[in-house]
Amino acid sequence: MIQRLSVYPDRLRIALLVLNESHWSRSVLEGVSRFAAEHGGWDFWLNPRGMKTQALMPSDWKGEGIIARISDQRVQDSLECHDCATINVSWHSEHSERFPKVIADPVGCGELAGNFFVQRGFQHFGYIGPPLCFNYRDPVQPAVKRVVEEANFSLSTFDPDPSSPSSDFDYQRSRLVEWVRALPKPIGIVAFSTVVAREVMLTCSAEGINVPNDVAVLAVEHDPLISQLSPMPISYIQQRPELVGYEAARELKRLISGGEPREQPICIAPEGIIEKPSTDTIFAADEMVQDAVAFIKRNSDTAINVSDLTRHLDVSRRSLEDRFRKALNRTPAEEIRHARLLVLKDYLRQTNLSLAEISARSGFSCENATLRFFKRMTGMTPGEYRRNYDPITAAHSEL
């Protein structure tokens, strides 16, 4: 009989029964890998698979621990025969002593999404969940619904066709068109994932519905590649999946060392919302204010000021400020500062450029001017913001 042999017999042997097709799941695995590397390395057993490949633990595998996405009963049954510590990183199934959970906080995600649109002044709200064929448990929608209803509004939820044979939204297109057409506008829509958000945006584009001014779209689960392939970049909730993986690995090591399972799951709170053009709604009915906001966005990486706006629009400063307050309840200067702050945050999150290089690219006179502006707007330095964006480094700094 052929026997399995460990590649690294002196290391902990850990099985990873997690999707490795989606960006979210790969980020979880990155967090696991990072923890393992910091603790001498683990001998991983990995079962590469996609969304529709059934992942089951082979009965002859031997090891010290498992990190799994326990998505249905068959997966759980395949794990039952392995007498070793197991961590569940899925929203599916229930937390238990046998299969304790380390997950992104779905309720926190739903509340964050709902509050984002409520605080932005929306009065109409929509929600579209995952394709039914994936059999996902969706704990986000109830949290969004509760927040919206507590603000005395209602939530319209897309009702997919249960007979659809595929996750391909071409099979749901006519149904999705009817739903989007019937929605009151402007409306803020929370989508379960970037994939689903993209389908809403494609439908709006085909119907001549403006995104984001008629329909603003926010994704719960982020995939940067899908966002790039969309009509415009999609706003999303920063769930910190790397930290989910890192903390799952930490918890697994604690159990392997003799620790007792926790009574409650470890829920990793979302960090915040990363704003992209898909939620950049302009509520102003005043066309001059709309033109002003568009001009600010086009020039947000330069040293633009209110005088530049008044010259561009051929209007007095006092008149422009009055119209801004009436339309948006803020001043042109506040709008400029907000736009310039978003540029700095994008550079800090997405690049390794020095502060001097970021200053030059974003229209600030010098590094000190950038630092003072950022600290005044956020209460933290650019360096602190960049470190906090790394979810694992940020978690360590909180300990």
Rank of each mutant, 00 (worst) to 15 (best):
247 E>H: 13
249 A>S: 12
249 A>C: 04
253 K>G: 06
275 E>H: 07
256 I>S: 00
272 G>H: 09
249 A>H: 04
247 E>P: 05
248 A>D: 01
269 A>D: 05
272 G>F: 10
269 A>V: 01
268 I>S: 04
261 P>N: 05
249 A>Y: 03
258 G>C: 08
250 R>G: 04
270 P>F: 09
263 E>P: 07
252 L>E: 03
271 E>L: 13
274 I>G: 04
275 E>R: 08
261 P>S: 07
263 E>W: 12
268 I>C: 02
253 K>M: 08
273 I>A: 05
273 I>H: 06
273 I>T: 09
258 G>V: 08
269 A>M: 09
264 Q>T: 13
259 G>Y: 08
268 I>Y: 01
274 I>P: 05
250 R>T: 04
250 R>Y: 03
260 E>Y: 11
273 I>E: 07
255 L>E: 10
275 E>Y: 07
262 R>C: 02
272 G>N: 08
259 G>I: 08
267 C>V: 10
257 S>Y: 09
266 I>A: 12
266 I>M: 10
265 P>K: 10
263 E>C: 14
250 R>C: 06
258 G>T: 06
261 P>Y: 03
276 K>D: 00
254 R>W: 02
270 P>L: 09
265 P>N: 12
269 A>P: 00
263 E>T: 15
268 I>K: 01
272 G>Y: 03
275 E>A: 12
260 E>A: 14
276 K>T: 00
271 E>G: 15
274 I>N: 08
255 L>F: 09
251 E>Q: 15
256 I>C: 03
261 P>K: 02
276 K>N: 02
261 P>C: 03
274 I>R: 15
271 E>C: 12
250 R>D: 00
271 E>M: 13
247 E>Q: 14
248 A>P: 01
250 R>E: 01
268 I>E: 01
268 I>G: 02
265 P>W: 06
274 I>F: 09
270 P>E: 10
267 C>T: 12
255 L>D: 09
276 K>P: 00
260 E>I: 13
276 K>L: 08
249 A>R: 11
260 E>D: 14
249 A>D: 01
253 K>W: 12
272 G>P: 04
254 R>G: 04
272 G>T: 02
274 I>A: 07
269 A>H: 07
271 E>T: 13
247 E>N: 12
274 I>V: 12
274 I>M: 08
267 C>Q: 14
265 P>Y: 06
257 S>F: 11
258 G>M: 10
256 I>D: 00
269 A>C: 10
247 E>C: 11
268 I>V: 07
257 S>R: 11
258 G>F: 10
266 I>F: 11
251 E>F: 15
248 A>I: 03
255 L>C: 10
276 K>R: 14
276 K>F: 00
271 E>Y: 14
252 L>Y: 04
259 G>K: 13
272 G>W: 03
265 P>R: 15
253 K>R: 13
247 E>V: 15
256 I>E: 01
266 I>G: 05
269 A>F: 05
270 P>D: 06
